[in-house]
Amino acid sequence: MKNILVTVDFNRNEQLLVDKAFQLAERFDSKIWLIHIAAPNPDFVGYEVGPQCIRDNRASELRKEHKLLQEQSNELNKKGVKAEGLLIQGATIEMIMEESKKLNVDLIFAGHHEHSFLYKAFVGSVSGKILKKSKIPVLIVPLG
């Protein structure tokens, strides 16, 4: 197992997910790819870009998320596990599947948050959708 993809959403408890991936990567001398899928640009989904303040705010969010990914990957590198962070804009599930193929990933780590029935009915679960679409083994870590 040479490449592990870890999906990071910056909502909560992803450190547990990163720690579990680290334990496995350390044992198998694997590389960890931390990936965060950001929402696509508004013009990608058919909306006008909008005022400059909205574009500036979006750019600031993306810089913050990129910095967090770099900090996490630097921390893993300091501990002796090769790691890189990727910030990609697009549709979450499709981008995870696409990057998994590009990076020749052997295992996908995804966190699972418990949600209400209504949330599941209307939005669904990212981890569940990854399980359905992936041809690569997926490890789901309960995050609360």
Score class of each variant (00 low, 15 high):
N3Q: 13
N3G: 01
T7N: 14
V8L: 06
V8A: 04
V8M: 04
N11G: 15
E14G: 00
L16K: 15
D19K: 15
K20L: 07
F22I: 03
Q23C: 05
A25F: 08
E26F: 10
S30K: 13
K31Y: 11
W33A: 01
L34W: 07
L34C: 04
I35Y: 01
I35R: 06
H36I: 02
I37E: 00
P40W: 00
P42E: 13
V45G: 03
V45W: 04
G46N: 10
Y47T: 02
Y47N: 03
E48H: 11
G50T: 08
P51D: 12
C53I: 12
D56L: 12
D56E: 15
N57C: 02
R58F: 01
R58T: 07
S60P: 00
S60V: 00
R63N: 14
R63F: 04
K64T: 07
E65I: 04
K67A: 08
E71M: 12
Q72E: 09
Q72Y: 12
S73E: 05
S73L: 05
E75D: 14
N77A: 11
V81L: 09
V81Y: 10
K82T: 06
A83Y: 10
A83H: 08
G85V: 03
G85N: 10
L87I: 08
G90T: 05
A91N: 12
I93Q: 05
E94P: 00
M95W: 00
I96L: 10
E98H: 13
E99M: 15
K102Y: 04
L103D: 04
N104P: 00
D106M: 06
L107P: 01
I108Q: 09
I108R: 14
H113I: 02
S116C: 08
S116M: 09
A121P: 00
G124W: 07
S125C: 07
S127K: 05
S127H: 11
S134Q: 13
K135L: 05
I136Q: 10
V138P: 04
V138G: 08
V138C: 06
I140F: 01
I140W: 01
L143T: 04
G144Q: 14
